[in-house]
Design a binder for these strands. Structure first.
Lengths: 192, 192
DNA sequence: TTCGCTTTTTATCATTTGTTAATGCTTTCT
DNA sequence: AGAAAGCATTAACAAATGATAAAAAGCGAA
C-alpha cells in the first residue's frame, strides 16, 4: 500500500506539486482498482462521472466510428493522468474509450467529490489547470506530429515518446495512432 | 458600435449563454481593435497577457519551427474564440502566432481583469469551462482528421468546416493545415 | 505438445504524395 | 504602365503508402 501511495504521489507531481497534507487528504478519497488486461475503464457512449489516474500498467484511448473502426488517440504509460471527465463527455456520456492493454492499477474518484475538494484547496485548483495545459499541449504536439511528419518520422517520434512500446502492445494500435496501415508500419519497422 | 456589440454577444453565445447584465458588464471591459491584413495579434516567443475574441475578419494560428517552417494549426473565421492565454503560453510567452489573413476586428481583455470578473460571476466560470471543452474537442477532431483521412478526404472535410475558404486565403496555409504540399493540394483541387 | 487463432511479415501491384523545376497568373509597388 | 515578387498550376519522375492476399510467426488453450 505504501508503494501505491508513492505511485499516486508521483502521478500528481507530474502535473503540479502538492503539499503532503493535501496529498494525504486527497489520497484518502480515491479508490484503487485493479484492471484486467483487455477491460475498459471508460467506455464510449456510457455514462461516466469519475476522474482517473493510472498508477501502473499501460492503457490506450480510442474512438470508434459508425463503421466500427477504432482510432487510437493516445497511450497512457504507467503514471499517467486521464483526460478530465468534463472534456471527454457529452451530457455525461463518454465520447471515447480507455482500455487496459496490460493488467493495470488505476486510482479513481468521483468528479463531484474531486470538485468539492478542489474548491477548498487552491493548490488543487492549480493542479487542475496544469492538467488542462498539459492536455492541450499534448494535443497540439499531436497535430504538429501529423501535419509535418511522414510515416517514418512519426514512428521515430513515437519511439522517443513511448520507449519500448513496440514490445509492449499489439502493433495494430500503434499503426492506428500513427495514422498508417499495419502493413506500412511493418515495412517501416523492417527497413533500415 | 451597436453592430460591434451584437457580434460580441454572438461570439460569446457560441460558448455558453450569458445574461444581458453580465454581457453588458464584460463588454465594457473589452477594448476593440482593428487589425490590418498581415499583422499579428499574438506572436510566438513574445510576452502576452490577454484574452481575445475575433468579431470579424479571418485569422490563422500557426507555429514556426527552428528552420522557419510555419505549420498552420487552426483557422479563425469571423466570431471565433481564441485559445485561452494560459494554454497558449509558457512563462507568459506565446508558443504560437495568430495572424490576420484579412482586415479584422478583435475584442481584447487583460487575463487578470477577465479572471477577476470570472470569480464574481458563476456564469463566466461556466463560460470558461465551455471554451476549454470546445477547444479540446476541436483538437480531438483534428487528430482523428489527420489519423484517418487521406489528402482528398481532408480537403473535403476542410470544405465542410470552412466553406469558401479556398477563395479567401492563400492556398499555402490550407496545404500546411492539411499536412500536404502545395503541389498536392493543387492536384486535388483540379482533379475529378 | 499440438491445434487453432491472432498477429506480423512479405510480396505484388495500384495509387497517392513528394520533389523539383518550369510556366503562367496575380498582386503590389514604383 | 512596367517591373518585381508572390502565388498557383502543371509536368515528369521518384518515393511512400494503400490494398489485397498469402505465408510465417507467435500465443493461448486443451
Amino acid at each position: 500500500m505504501a508503494e501505491i501511495k508513492k505511485l499516486f504521489a508521483q502521478v500528481f507531481s507530474k502535473n503540479a506539486p502538492l503539499s503532503p497534507r493535501v496529498l494525504d487528504l486527497i489520497f484518502s478519497l480515491f479508490k484503487i482498482c485493479i484492471i484486467e488486461k483487455g477491460s475498459e475503464i471508460v467506455s464510449q457512449g456510457r455514462i461516466n462521472s469519475k476522474e482517473y489516474f493510472l498508477l501502473s500498467g499501460f492503457l490506450h484511448e480510442f474512438t470508434c466510428d459508425e463503421k466500427g473502426n477504432e482510432t487510437t488517440l493516445d497511450f497512457y504509460p504507467a503514471q499517467s493522468t486521464f483526460v478530465p471527465n468534463f472534456c471527454r463527455t457529452n451530457n455525461n456520456r463518454s465520447i471515447l474509450t480507455v482500455r487496459a492493454l496490460t493488467k493495470s492499477v488505476v486510482a479513481e474518484i468521483d468528479t463531484t467529490v474531486f470538485g468539492n475538494t478542489r474548491k477548498k484547496y487552491a493548490e488543487l485548483d492549480t493542479f487542475s489547470s496544469s492538467v488542462i495545459i498539459n492536455l492541450y499541449k499534448s494535443k497540439l504536439q499531436k497535430q504538429i506530429f501529423h501535419a509535418t511528419k511522414s510515416g517514418k518520422g512519426k514512428l521515430e517520434q513515437l519511439r522517443k515518446d513511448y520507449p519500448g512500446i513496440e514490445n509492449k502492445i499489439p502493433l495494430t494500435y500503434i499503426a492506428s495512432y500513427l495514422g498508417i496501415t499495419n502493413v506500412s508500419l511493418s515495412r517501416l519497422r523492417n527497413k533500415k
